[in-house]
Design a binder for these strands. Structure first.
Lengths: 354, 354
DNA sequence: CTGTTAGCGCGTTCAG
DNA sequence: CTGAACGCGCTAACAG
């Protein structure tokens, strides 16, 4: 394999000249540059990433920590992985994919061996051990999702605004009684940001509009979910709209609705919050899509921007003055909160109303 | 950040001694080893990956090339990405995720800059340009899926055997007339291996069992699919079983079946081929799951085994004698063909039969 | 200005 | 167990 020396020899110049041609960080005469470029072509030369990294202390790689909830693969994670990778490439970064099969071990190893310059954490939980590790190592990172506590840059859909918007739009369409199928109980128990904020949004919008919004806590067990939903659908006064944040079991949920003899949207309007863009099977429903592309772009940028803040020394002292970049106070961390947008068909009016 | 020299200084030994302690490739006295290990602990030392790579010419990274069919994200790809990553970790390798947003450019860049030691290609197509590039660069690789042409190691479900098994099992349950919903037309046109092999399996099993197996070519457009399926379901004599290889539109497909007034499995037995393991919504159907875990394990091992074969020189000459490792003749490439297994409930008998 | 020389980054490994 | 060369590219300092 060709090295910079081979190129230099072939072009009849010094290796440093080749390097300057590559980086463009210095003026090189027309003739020399052409000779060098010809040599590069002919030898098919490409600089070794490892040599560059060793010298520059920059890998131009982002570590992407995918959550791997045992047994519960979430399609969304794959989608984010692809989109974050594309976004990172837009900044000249590659992406190293990591699972939790090793707990936080993998992340620690990658950070300490300097395989990556920064990390992107997916599906962050309250008091996420990965956050602790990165903080302890002073490793730059950004989060997909947020939990109001981590002192790291983050991006997220404004879940409170999203659910509130779904409620308000339903009210605007004429609905007065509706169900909100929130996140699953174990997600609330884990204090996932989206779960808590979604509940807040429902409550806030209910108060603001005066609508009757009944919260049905979802459950990961489809049978329990079906039972709860069934009860809520038949309780009087009968609800005319169903706002759904817990989407993993959507097919089953629609079956339950159908089994209750309710046609959508004639008898019951179903509005989704946090659906995947372009997903088959949600196209015909009014919804607020999860802004996967925008979140991915934002998180890549936040992670890359964080490089150069966290790299100085060891773990930041607790007395550290709040300067530029990633600080210790959550409220100061850079972030990108995305406002919800309605998509899909217009919300249908309740039965018996024009 | 601590380096090997810092550790050496603290332990009062030479850097090379520290290196030998780390690698274990040489005998080091008890005392010295402990001193070194203590110094490592105290300094929190971890070797730089880039320095190791520069020296050893091994990154211990696999490039995973995810297909990104524009607009058509496939959940399965995310699943494979996770599982391949886990499998690679089992061999001490990390995974760099790549999209084709850049065409083959990304793969070429990663190969030439030696960011990875080998590549794993997902969703390989006939005459896949990525395969050409890797072959041209002499870069080790292994494929998820195969097309009978690429001279690279591969793993795949035996799709022919899988569809044949589904047919035979249906016949064993008493069905004599069945539909086979094959892959979508554009997949057949692209000569995707799974699409062609699936069709072969259906034909072979039909011939062997004498059953009436009607092939319904699927289509990516849900409406066209629904129309075709509807026609086939109502054509006389009425089929009693439906074998489905094209699963992306399964929910829509089941809707169509229901809309035709057919209850599953009472009026019509539905058997899936190539379903995702543990996926909600397929649990209640007899099926042959795609062996994602086994394929991932196999492809990681094949890719890693290929390292050391392709690394010698430039593009292999066409006259190269077929030796060990990756050879030029497709039939010689190492591979791992996985036999199908039925999962889920037993196939129900046709109506009117016990 | 344009090109060259030399040292560095960090861990590995062979000869001593 | 140590010394020193080495892998490869970057870049500050120097020479023409």
């Amino acid at each position: 394999m060709a090295t910079i020396k081979d190129v230099a020899a072939r072009a009849g110049v010094a290796p440093s000249t080749v390097s300057y041609v590559l980086s463009g960080s210095r003026k090189i005469s027309e003739d020399t540059r052409h000779a060098v470029q010809a040599a590069i072509e002919e030898l098919g030369y490409h600089p070794r990433a490892s040599a560059r990294t060793l010298r520059s202390a920059r890998t131009r790689v982002l570590a992407l920590a995918a959550p791997r909830v045992p047994g519960a693969y979430r399609a969304i994670d794959g989608r984010f992985a692809i989109d974050v990778t594309d976004a990172a490439r837009g900044h000249g970064y590659d992406v190293l994919l990591m699972t939790d099969s090793d707990g936080v071990g993998g992340l620690r190893r990658v950070a300490r061996s300097r395989l990556a310059d920064a990390a992107v954490l997916m599906a962050v939980e309250d008091r996420d051990p990965r956050v602790e590790v990165l903080h302890e190592l002073g490793f730059p990172a950004a989060l997909l999702g947020h939990d109001d506590h981590a002192a790291l840059p983050w991006t997220d859909l404004d879940w409170e605004a999203a659910v509130a918007l779904a409620v308000r739009e339903s009210v605007a369409a004429g609905h007065r009684r509706m169900l909100f199928l929130s996140s699953a109980e174990h997600e609330v128990a884990a204090r996932r940001g989206y779960a808590l904020h979604g509940l807040d949004g429902a409550r806030r919008a209910a108060a603001e509009t005066g609508a009757d919004v009944r919260v049905v806590p979802s459950h990961r067990d489809p049978d329990i979910l079906a039972r709860r939903l069934n009860e809520a659908l038949t309780a009087r006064p009968v609800p005319t709209a169903l706002i759904v944040q817990h989407l993993i079991l959507l097919p089953r949920l629609l079956d339950t609705v159908a089994a209750a003899g309710l046609r959508v949207p004639h008898h019951l309007t179903v509005v989704l919050v946090g659906s995947l863009p372009d997903e088959l099977g949600t196209r015909h429903l009014p919804r607020i899509d999860l802004p996967v592309a925008e979140m991915s772009t934002a998180v890549a940028r936040l992670a890359i921007d964080a490089i150069g803040s966290g790299r100085d020394d060891g773990p930041p002292s607790s007395q550290e003055p709040a300067g530029a970049g990633a600080s210790t106070r959550p409220s100061d961390a850079p972030h990108h909160l995305i406002q919800p947008q309605m998509a899909g068909p217009v919300i249908a009016p309740p039965p018996g109303r024009p």
